[in-house]
Amino acid sequence: MAIDYKTAIAIIAVAAVCTFATRLFPFALFSKSETIPKSVQYLGKVLPPAVIATLVIYCLKDVNLSQFPSGIAELISIALVVGVHAWKKNTLLSIGLGTACYMILIRTVFA
């Protein structure tokens, strides 16, 4: 430990409070209003697909495009997940096969 434990606890407490604050924000913003504004209801409805799409890209953010294999293992594995899921519609199967494919690829072809 580079710092004393009281400082460490303070840092952890601040991180906990700030993390909760970001999640609390929308609820606090609209807690008083009896009915939620129509535009916010609309956003609540359409944001999930947009956010999930953003999270897929977020997972790929550390892929280095300028250096081999520049995300090919990720791309192949994602294609497999999409294909298997469109075909079998079994969440665990799609995730399991995709992850296995990725783990094998980074150990063999793209090692």
């Binding site: 594995s77 999409v82 992850t99 150990r107």
Partner: peptide, 22 residues
């Protein structure tokens, strides 16, 4: 190493499901 891809796969699965249902 690479097991973290299961989170990517989870988001991709949910993306596919929402693509079909939305």
């Amino acid at each position: 190493a690479g097991i973290e891809f299961s989170m990517t796969a989870l988001f991709v699965v949910i993306f596919v499901e929402q693509w079909k249902s939305f």
